[in-house]
Write a protein that binds this DNA or RNA. Structure first.
Length: 590
DNA sequence: CTAGGGTTAG
């Protein structure tokens, strides 16, 4: 059919031709707008009842296959509501359309339940697969698990699409053990998507070695990775700060001719930034043919993380010139760049820009602002800026002697988040700083009473493409004897340099001598010692820590860099520290 | 009509 049908013609045509016209018309549509236009045209044709129902379900399916936006979801719902007796196909399409990230109420899951309650039509493997995707998108683990058991009861579990849906649900919910058990059960059905999903799951939770092992297994199984797989692999390297691995994986991508698309480029930018090669990150960014908000944000956040505020802000203004709309993450980069460099006025200007652009501030954005103000001594302004961000206030009060704010903020904080271990550690540190050991003891008791456990500090270093992890006083490493020899030598050199161990960094109320021993075995120090043991200058010792740098280990690292003539780069939870010749790139301001 | 990916303060 090559022309637009007009109402008088429509009435005279046989049904199969009308249906062909409907299918043709809907297939032309490339956007939601076009779909609405086609819808209006079909209405004017006054189609017979059955053809009209077909038209609606075709429109609905097309809507479901379009970009998953809130607008598409609400249009899909209105289409669905006009269909008198929705088939399973219609339910499937609507469930698919409702699976948007902006749908926190898990509407898709509610619709699935409604379908079950109604008794007919009964769900099929498509229904479950789409509903699982909805749960994975939110993500909603509880609802997903219910789907799992219902799928099992209805015999839909064996479908490969349901299997991958389950695997992906668990992987996205960071339930790697569950994901792995689904993956293991798939055996013959393991395809590219299943492998990628499982690797993504490991990468998401920071199980880097597992992700890379699986990546190797995948190739051994004869499945060729594509750009989606590589995003997860690169992102695992980024998380670990594993530069050599990251570089190797990048070379692999080039060697295999895998397309470096928007997402993969963004992952590469993030990887090089987080592994300390900000120039390489910049090269990847400059080579991109298409850049979206996330790509710009990754570059800006990366530059900010390296203390390169000027570059970060220059990139940001180029982004605005090109009319790319920033989001709250972009502003985290912009504001933290300002905070790290004492640019209070700029920071406040960017804050207003953010409001003017109608971007809703996240908790993190408020945090950046409070940080910015506090670093410039504007404590009272910060206090009135957001009375609800008690923890930030507490962080900022550390060096202020404002016991009134500390008391109030900690009281509020423990009311609001009695289970967050960071709050306890934070306050304990404050008390320890002032040698208020009875209060430190009280915090420990309070933690125990409330069943709160701290996150263990963990540092890692990559040697010969293997990631070695250390926790405090960790005796589990196979080369621990040799490491301890290095540690003793470090302690000797530190002593001779005149450094006094900053024992307040040890939270236990133990004797001074024991504190010194505990300090010497902090995870970051074990990792650095291992780096000294396994590599020779000018090789750079690169360590990644999951928490913030211990202040004493920071001093000691400066001494090591001078005394051993080694360059040491440590990424802590917040930023990079680069030690050369006895000083650190953070200039002791962190 | 089915499934997998990137940026997040201190």
């Amino acid at each position: 059919m090559h022309h637009q049908l007009k109402p008088p013609e429509a009435a005279t045509l046989p049904r199969h031709l009308l249906e062909a016209h409907v299918v043709w018309l809907v297939r032309q549509c490339r956007s939601l707008r076009a779909l609405r236009g086609a819808h209006a045209r079909l209405l004017r044709l006054r189609l017979p009842r059955l053809t009209h129902a077909l038209a609606l379900s075709k429109l609905l399916a097309s809507c479901a296959a379009s970009a998953p936006t809130a607008a598409a979801a609400s249009y899909a719902r209105s289409l669905f509501d006009q269909i008198p007796e929705p088939t399973a196909f219609c339910y499937n399409s609507l469930i698919r359309a409702l699976a948007t990230p902006s749908n926190p109420t898990a509407d898709a899951f509610l619709l699935y339940r409604r379908m079950l309650r109604a008794g007919s039509p009964s769900p099929n493997s498509f229904t479950v697969a789409f509903a699982l995707k909805a749960c994975a998108t939110v993500p909603a683990l509880g609802e997903g698990r219910q789907l799992h058991s219902q799928a099992f009861r209805q015999g839909l579990e064996p479908s490969p699409y349901v299997q991958t849906g389950l695997l992906n649900l668990y992987a996205r919910c960071e339930e790697v053990a569950l994901a792995k058990s689904v993956f293991d059960g798939m055996a013959e059905d393991r395809n590219l998507v299943a492998w990628s999903s499982m690797i993504g799951g490991y990468s998401r939770v920071g199980m880097v070695n597992e992700a890379l092992d699986l990546f190797r297994d995948m190739q051994a199984a004869g499945v060729n990775p594509d750009e989606v797989t590589m995003v997860s692999v690169i992102s695992a390297c980024a998380k670990a700060g594993a530069l050599d691995l990251g570089r190797w994986v990048h070379a692999f991508i080039d060697r295999k001719g895998i397309t470096v698309d928007l997402e993969l480029s963004t992952a590469l930018i993030d990887m090089y930034a987080k592994c300390g090669l900000i120039e390489r990150a910049r090269l990847v960014f400059d080579a991109m043919v298409e850049r979206d908000t996330k790509a710009w944000s990754a570059m800006i956040v990366g530059l900010a993380m390296h203390g390169l505020a000027e570059d970060a802000l220059a990139i940001f203004s180029r982004m605005l010139q090109l009319k790319i709309r920033p989001n709250n993450v972009t502003f985290i980069g912009v504001l933290s760049a300002c905070a790290h460099n004492g640019l209070v006025d700029d920071g406040q200007r960017y804050w207003s820009t953010m409001q003017e652009m109608g971007i809703k501030a996240s908790m993190e954005n408020y945090g950046c602002m409070v940080d910015l103000l506090c670093r410039s001594g504007l404590l009272d302004e910060a206090y009135s800026f957001v009375t609800s961000i008690w923890r930030n206030l507490l962080v900022a009060s550390k060096s202020s002697n404002r016991t009134d704010i500390v008391g109030l903020a900690s009281k509020k904080l423990f009311e609001l988040e009695p289970q967050n271990p960071e709050n306890y550690v934070l306050l304990s540190n404050l008390y320890a700083l002032n040698s208020q050991w009875d209060r430190v003891r009280y915090m420990r008791k309070k933690m125990k009473d409330n069943n709160v456990t701290v996150v263990a500090g963990c540092s890692s270093i990559e040697i010969n493409s293997y990631l070695h992890k250390f926790v405090v006083s960790d005796g589990s490493h196979p080369e621990i004897k040799e490491i301890r020899v290095v540690l003793r030598e470090i302690a000797d050199r530190v002593l001779r340099s005149g450094h006094k161990p900053w024992t307040a960094a040890v939270l236990h109320d133990v004797g001074e001598e024991e504190k010194e021993i505990a300090l010497c075995e902090h995870s970051e120090r074990l990792a650095i010692a291992y780096g000294l043991l396994k590599t020779k200058a000018p090789h750079v010792i690169r360590v990644v820590k999951n928490l913030r740098f211990c202040p004493d280990c920071h001093e000691v690292s400066k001494i090591i860099s001078k005394s051993y003539g080694r360059e040491i780069i440590v990424r802590d939870r917040v930023r990079f520290h680069r030690f050369i010749g006895g000083s650190c790139s953070c200039k002791d301001f962190w």
